[in-house]
Each structure stands twice: as C-alpha cells, then as structure tokens.
Amino acid sequence: MSFERDFPANKGAALVLGGSGGIGSAICTAFAEAGTNVALTYRTNKQAGEEVVAAIETAGRSGAAFPLAMEDRTAVNETLQDVIKKFGRIHTVVNASGSHIAMKFLGDIPPDEFWRVMESDTAGFYNVVHALLPHMRKEGGSFVAIGTTGMFRWPSKDALSVIPKAANDAIMTGIAREEGRNGIRANSVALGLIDAGLFLKLKGTAYDDRYIDAAVRNSALKRLGTAEEVAQAVLFFASNRARFVTGQTLVLDGGYSL
C-alpha cells in the first residue's frame, strides 16, 4: 500500500501512540514502508523507541520517538506541539497504547487499580483526542484505535483490557459522527490473540498453554494473529482506500468471536 498514491495530499506524519510496543512497532514500520513519516510515543522504554525510529529511517522515511504519559495533560499538549513542529502536520493518529495489566476476575480488581488503568488508557486517549482535533480539523485526517474482540466475546480475567477499550470505542464513535463534517474519520481494529506485544509478556503466566490452545481451537482459522496483519488493517483504515468508511470496527480475531 503506497501513501504516495493513497495519500496524495497527506504531507506530515502518522502518530502512533504506543509505537514502541510489539504491535505498535509493526504499525510504525508499515506506515514508513508505505511512504509516510512516523512519530511515535513510548512510556518508559527509550531504547525500544529509538529502535523503531531506526526501522522507520531504514524504510526511507523520517521518524521520531517521544516519551509520553498520556494521562498527563500538560505533557500531552507539549508533546503534540513538538510533533507538529517537527513534521508540520499529523494526518493519522493510531492508538496502540495500553497498560501492562494483571489478569483478574472483575470482582477481584481493587478500585484503585481499575481507575489507574482507566486514567492511563481512556482518559489519556481522550487527552490526545481533545488536544489534536483543532489541528486535524484544518485539513482532515484519520483516527484508528486498537480495540479488542473482548467487546464481542467476553474473555474472563481480561476486564482491565476490555473496559478501557470499550470506552475508547465510544470516543471513536463520537469522533466519527461529530467530526466527519471536518474531514476526520475514526475506525477501530478489534484484536483477538496476537502473537506479539503484551501477549508475549503474559505468555506462560496468564496465557498458559492450555489457555492458548483453547483460544486457537475456538477460532475459525485455528491460529494466532500476527502484528503485521494488524498493521495492514490499520493502514487500510488510514488510507484513502477507506475514505468513505468511518465509525466502523474490523474484528481481527481469526473468527474467535463468531
């Protein structure tokens, strides 16, 4: 997919929130290979962010990594201004960020832990949306959120992933409905088990062999997804190929939620 063809007017950069992670880094690389500059954020892992920037530059595009705790509104505003100053324009925002969570039954989650994740993942995403909408209204653009298939088939002990993403999905619907008149689209990619990112960190603990085997067995395609497959879905939503698509969710779970 070529941005030179699909984004003829889109000078500037895509911004990938959480672009240093396993899925986020694949999205950054795919954007760069498609021909657009990429800005990405990371929370604490500066080295991972720098490695993604190197991959972006290897693909022939300009990249930059910015540390960001999205629940910090002042930091959000300052960081976004730095991105705009460097690249001139943000034409696409991809929310691939997410907290490292504990797998617990809903009733076992302490309120403080629940609100910490909501503050980081949902209030944080809203901080970015609120800060960027005035900028994106000038020339239009696209939001793409990474969601979860858990909104369609509840996965036990995954409340701290599903609930914030469900709230973010509502924010995306609001953007799609209210900002379409300004040339802004908003779509989501709802993921099942993807063999990358947080899944790898939880593999062997929260996701033991029995859990993974059951998930694969209960899917239609009988396998896990890949970060590259997620990246291609994100690219479609961000591109002009989806220019008449907004407010939609693509379920990328191998048929698990059927």
Rank of each mutant, 00 (worst) to 15 (best):
R223M: 07
A190I: 02
T44Q: 12
I101P: 06
T92K: 00
P67Q: 01
T74E: 14
H91F: 09
G21Q: 04
M1R: 07
A65R: 00
D213A: 15
L200Q: 14
S156F: 07
D112R: 09
G24C: 08
R243C: 11
A206D: 14
V234S: 05
T148G: 09
F31L: 02
D108F: 03
K157Y: 05
G254S: 07
A159W: 06
A96W: 02
D158R: 11
V230A: 08
S25V: 06
R210S: 13
L198K: 11
G22N: 04
A186V: 03
A220D: 05
S161T: 14
V53Q: 02
T79Y: 01
V245Q: 09
M1Q: 02
E57I: 00
R181K: 13
A196T: 01
W154F: 13
D253I: 04
I23R: 01
E4P: 00
G98N: 07
G18H: 02
F236E: 03
G255W: 01
A190C: 14
A242D: 08
A220Y: 04
R223G: 08
T92L: 02
G255C: 05
A220S: 14
L258S: 14
Y256G: 06
G254I: 01
A34T: 01
A39F: 03
W115H: 12
R185T: 07
F236T: 09
L202G: 10
P8A: 05
M70Q: 15
A32H: 00
A231F: 07
V234I: 14
G60I: 07
E178T: 12
H135G: 05
A233K: 08
S188N: 08
V38Y: 06
A55F: 01
I163Q: 02
K46P: 12
W154Q: 10
A9N: 14
D213M: 03
T92D: 09
V16S: 09
R177Y: 08
A64G: 11
A242S: 11
I163C: 06
R43H: 13
I212W: 02
T92E: 05
A196I: 04
A220R: 07
S120H: 12
A214N: 14
L17A: 04
A190D: 15
M1I: 05
A34P: 07
G247L: 06
V216T: 10
R181Y: 08
G107Q: 13
L80G: 00
F244H: 14
K203F: 08
A9F: 12
R177H: 06
D6L: 13
T44I: 06
A54G: 11
A123F: 10
I23W: 01
R73H: 08
A170S: 15
P111I: 03
G12P: 07
E179R: 00
R43Y: 12
G60K: 02
A145W: 11
I23P: 08
M118A: 14
A242H: 05
A206R: 06
T122R: 00
V93Q: 01
K203M: 12
W115C: 01
V230E: 06
E119F: 00
I194K: 07
F7G: 12
